[in-house]
Design a protein around this nucleic acid. Structure first.
Length: 476
RNA sequence: CGGGGAAUGGCGCAGUUUGGUAGCGCGCACGGUUUGGGACCGUGAGGUCCCGGGUUCAAAUCCCGGUUCCCCGACCA
């Protein structure tokens, strides 16, 4: 009867089953593209709104830039074009005529935004520029998976310009912290903040920072990135300003992005064999009410009580759904579980008589997760339960992550560790080393975690002294 | 883009070896009985058998070309 493949049997199938059964997305008739259905989009919207609020709180404003970028723009920054040209979609015809200059469908907007910033910024008084754009971008990926890697994906990209490197560096770290806070506090995902190794850097960046998360199959997912672009794009596009001392200086720019991939992370970090498990803060539906009755007489009183409870919970600000479909209660229980709804309220004749309801929590399966609560206390109890579920999910994910990360000091131990989790190993930051380890173990250098004890270790490959460990894992 | 698997009603599949004009389960619609953990009975709707070409009296089935999806690699948020 199970509609969802168990995670143990085939994690990949499980992931796709959950997306289908939870009604989040469907395949589009275009290579590598998906259609996000209302339930999935609603989840994305909730995540987006939290992030957007955080951007505004840190002084950023939203704006919109064209999705078409002249090819010559991309070519202005050498590393940038090198990194992105293999995955560009390019428009060569418009209005039935061959275009004089082909237009790339934006794979990211550093170049066109850099061009605009060059015009907008004249004086130190114009700085900093703190703009974010919610949009979609296109990267012609070879292998796609819903939300994790799609040809077109929705995301936000922040682009800032600053007078000093000190300021831009602060910005890079501030936004990395924003992403991490969003992951922890709203998505209940314990991410690891880190600096990307040289080989994993963004094309055109001096430094890239990321948050890395561990999925339920112990693979890594990069869930947000923040780039210190140095003066690379400022040079390429002439983003210059006249400083207080009346000398012309190049700006320091940053960019940072988080995509709907984060939604994939939510699925894979919290989901179980029953389907989705959503943190209450971002769940499209936080409470599902399932009425239970045997006949029309019972239906009348039960629906009346259910409706009253529905209005009460709605009035207290919850996203609540009264499930009045003509299905059996058992069907509805399973359906809402697949969709990851954190709390379910069951109301039957016995509850009507007792002025109570049965309360079931998604994070504790079966009877153990059910309790009976007086209707008068319900809103209060559910509010408390949200907190409990939200923090419980984070706690579970954190335990899982920590139980599957090993500090290693030899290559042999790293090999073993990455077979079933992450390894923290001292290595030198050298693309050749990353490549070798990837070649031999399939694990990649995820980052050099920021929060780690500094010490004196020997690189597990070269034996050279290093001061920090890198996080290795197989990755999406 | 390389290697492997697959494509038949909304979903999961059988039929393909040995060509003869499409079937099962679930879902869907209607009626009835049900309903505290994925109900049951009856009736019914729904298919260019991925697309294009070829072979043949006849193609889901054989041949050629293409597309898409899944898994494993190389590239990435």
């Amino acid at each position: 009867m199970a509609k969802i493949t168990s995670r143990a049997k085939d994690y990949s199938e499980w992931y796709l089953d959950v997306i289908r059964e939870a009604d989040m997305a469907d395949y589009a008739p275009v290579r590598g593209c998906i259609v996000v259905k209302p339930y999935g989009w609603s989840l994305y919207e909730n995540m987006r709104d939290f992030l957007d609020r955080r951007f505004k709180e840190t002084g950023h404003s939203n704006a919109a830039f064209p999705m078409f970028i002249p090819m010559s723009f991309l070519q202005k920054e050498a590393q940038h074009v090198k990194g992105f040209s293999p995955e560009l979609a390019v428009v060569t015809v418009g209005g039935g005529e061959q275009l004089e200059e082909p237009l790339a469908v934006r794979p990211t907007s550093e170049t066109i935004i850099g061009y605009m910033y060059a015009q907008w910024v004249k004086s130190y008084r114009d700085l900093p520029v703190l703009i974010n754009a919610w949009n979609s971008v296109v990267r012609w990926e070879k292998r796609t998976r819903p939300f994790l890697r799609t040809t077109e994906f929705y995301w936000q990209e922040g682009h800032t310009a600053h007078a000093t490197h000190e300021e831009s560096t602060e910005e890079v770290m501030r936004m990395l912290d924003v992403y991490a806070a969003h992951a922890f506090e709203e998505c209940a995902i314990p991410v690891i903040k880190g600096r990307k190794s040289i080989s994993e850097r963004f094309a055109g960046a001096d430094k890239t920072f990321s948050i890395e998360a561990m999925m339920g199959d112990k693979k890594a997912l990069q869930s947000g990135t923040s780039h210190d672009l140095g003066q690379n794009f400022a040079k390429a596009f002439g983003i210059k300003f006249l400083d207080r001392d009346n000398t012309e200086k190049l700006c320091w720019t940053t960019s940072w992005g988080m995509s709907w991939r984060m939604l994939g992370a939510v699925i894979m970090v919290h989901g179980d064999d029953q389907g989705l498990r959503l943190p209450p803060k971002i769940a499209p539906v936080q409470v599902a009410i399932v009425p239970i009755y045997k006949n029309d007489g019972e239906k009348g009183v039960v629906m009346e009580a259910s409706d009253r409870v529905f209005r009460m919970l709605k009035a207290s600000g919850m996203r609540v759904k009264l499930d009045d479909r003509e299905e059996t209660p058992g069907f509805k229980f399973n359906d809402w579980e697949m969709r990851g709804v954190p709390v379910r309220v069951e109301i039957g004749p016995r509850d009507v008589a007792n002025q109570s309801v049965a309360l079931a929590r998604r994070d504790v399966p079966g009877k153990a997760g059910k309790s009976f609560v007086p209707q008068s206390e319900l809103a209060q109890r559910i509010t408390a339960l949200f907190e409990e579920i939200q923090s419980g999910l984070l706690q579970q994910a954190t335990r899982f992550r920590d139980a599957n990360i090993r500090e290693v000091d030899s290559y042999a131990d790293l090999r073993e560790a990455v077979e079933d989790g992450f390894a923290l190993a001292p290595v030198v930051d050298d693309p050749a080393i990353d490549a070798q380890i990837k070649e031999e173990t399939k694990a990649t250098n995820r980052c050099f975690p920021l929060d780690q004890a500094q010490g004196e270790w020997k690189c597990i490959i070269t034996g050279r002294p290093v001061r920090e460990r890198a996080l290795f894992g197989k990755a999406y």
